[in-house]
Write a protein that binds this DNA or RNA. Structure first.
Length: 206
DNA sequence: ACATTAATTGTGT
DNA sequence: ACACAATTAATGT
């Protein structure tokens, strides 16, 4: 059997066996597009390693980050799409290199009936995603951009497991759907406050 | 090693 | 938001 170590604690034997049998292990590299808008959903991913950024596209041209998926997460929206056989409403881009298991839709539904641990896993993930969404909504609706930026940076530190972020002001602006100049200015003030340090294409959280 | 270009960041209006 | 200056990295000769 493959190395699903940590999954052993979550799922029972029989289910692990089925995952092993029917799931496809897929490796991805940073910046790979995992799922694009309008893509037909083929299965539900379980992240084994690395992180994935889930984005939402706006009516005109803006894109914005919704949340990150990390180890042992699955994507609630994908589930939702599966059930209704809909096309993807979001774009998923690899944040880091990593691995995931893709489980075909048919099994996802079957396992809901067969395995208690699977149901729990799915429900817990729904819960987690919803909470993150609320956070994100709060940060858009109520927080000033500087707080939102900090929130973003902290999330990024968490999913990359590094205090040193390799990213340009432009990329950040795209993720937050704002302009580069604004980000540059905010980062400058954060730097002056000693919250971060900057080098070219690098931001270090203190 | 040097010049040229492109990419990234800083600042003023 | 826009324009431009300043700085740094990448590439070719």
């Amino acid at each position: 059997m493959k190395d699903f170590n940590a999954l052993n604690h979550i799922f029972e034997e029989a289910l692990l066996k089925e995952i092993n049998q029917h799931g496809t292990e897929i490796s991805f590299m940073a910046d790979d597009i995992i799922t694009d808008y309008q893509d037909q959903i083929k299965g539900v991913p379980i992240i084994l390693d690395g992180a994935i950024k889930v984005m939402r596209e706006d009516f005109n041209d803006g894109e914005m980050i919704m949340y990150f998926l990390t180890k042992y997460d699955t994507c609630a929206l994908t589930l939702q799409c599966c059930m209704s056989k809909a096309k993807s409403e979001v774009k998923a881009v690899a944040e880091t290199n990593g691995k995931l298991i893709m489980v075909p839709i048919s099994f996802v539904q079957e396992w809901m009936k067969k395995y208690e641990t699977w149901r729990n896993y799915i429900i817990k993930n729904y819960d987690k995603r919803l909470k993150e969404m609320l956070n994100t909504i709060d940060s858009i609706a109520f927080m000033k951009l500087d707080q939102r930026l900090l929130h973003y940076l902290n999330e990024k530190v968490y999913v990359n497991e590094s205090k040193s972020l390799d990213i340009t002001h432009q990329k950040i602006a795209e993720d937050l759907n704002t302009s580069r100049v604004v980000i540059s200015r905010l980062l400058k003030t954060l730097e002056n406050k000693g919250i971060i340090k900057q080098e070219r294409s690098i931001i270090k959280l203190m």
